[in-house]
Design a protein around this nucleic acid. Structure first.
Lengths: 154, 154
DNA sequence: TATTGTTATACTCTATAACTATA
DNA sequence: TATAGTTATAGAGTATAACAATA
């Protein structure tokens, strides 16, 4: 890229930086909105997935959520401490823990959704419903999972 | 929101969470791509703004970049240590520092842009040019600046 | 020996408040 | 007293490696 091109570029012309910035702000907003119950976006996503897919092993959760094992441990510790989810050993393979959302977890999830609705209203208030859906579709197609592409280069 | 609606919702139906997640990944990717020179998205944005707007006070940079004063200090410390930018006192008001990008900074900016291009190619590789521009326009309209709306509620 | 989950640790980013120096 | 910049610190997120228990 030439010096002229660089100097002509507006700061937020770089979509990667724009996404990084807006995403970080979104994360902070979500955390504040959930603040009352003391957890963050990770906790919300985990609860949602448990509600959606039912009881499952931590390994499955790790893959579904795309988080590091050590991250999931701390999230589950928090959820369990607050009685929103429970771990129990799998009798068939005592290495595994089956994670299940509790009734209290389902109640908390309702409040989580309400908080998210509020955050989204703030973030996306300048877009109409059509634009929001379009943004959603485009964002869904951004590649954020570790790449398993064939090595075409490098 | 009813229990039925919640259980029907797919995890990533919540645009706020999707944005938060993708944005965090983008930030990590940017940091890794810039890793060779040892700085992150903040440093890139700061350099870009200095290239774009020329020498300016830290106060102006703080507003332009939307960062906390203490954040800017550490970013400028890093840039200055590596000789990419310089602070000098404003003779007219010795409280102020004027920040200016160096020649080395301009050179580094070229590499920053190349790294960003690579990151964006990975993130947005499944979108065509038209979709990328559309995503850019939509993301630009997401409200991430502190709200100064009239208090219509709460 | 491999796998599941846990612990410990280090690094980055964000945010707040207290501080120095100038005005 | 107000403003520009700095320092110190706390909190959240990410990432890695070492570890215990079980298979």
């Amino acid at each position: 890229m030439s010096v002229e091109e660089i100097q002509a570029a507006q700061t937020m012309d770089r979509l990667g930086l724009l996404l990084a910035h807006h995403g970080t702000v979104a994360q902070v907003r979500v955390r504040h909105a959930l603040g009352v119950t003391g957890f963050g976006a990770r906790h919300a996503v985990t609860l949602m997935h448990l509600a959606e897919s039912g009881p499952m092993g931590q390994q499955a959760l790790i893959e579904a959520l795309g988080v590091d094992p050590s991250v999931l441990v701390t999230v589950l510790n928090d959820l369990e401490r607050d009685g929103l989810a429970e771990r129990r050993r799998d009798p068939a393979d005592r290495r595994r823990h089956i994670v299940e959302m509790t009734e209290a977890g389902a109640g908390a999830l309702t409040r989580v959704h309400d908080a998210l609705t509020e955050v989204e209203r703030e973030l996306f208030g300048d877009l109409d419903q059509d634009e929001i859906e379009h943004l959603h579709r485009l964002l869904s197609r951004v590649r954020t999972t570790p790449e398993e592409q064939a090595c075409t280069e490098e």
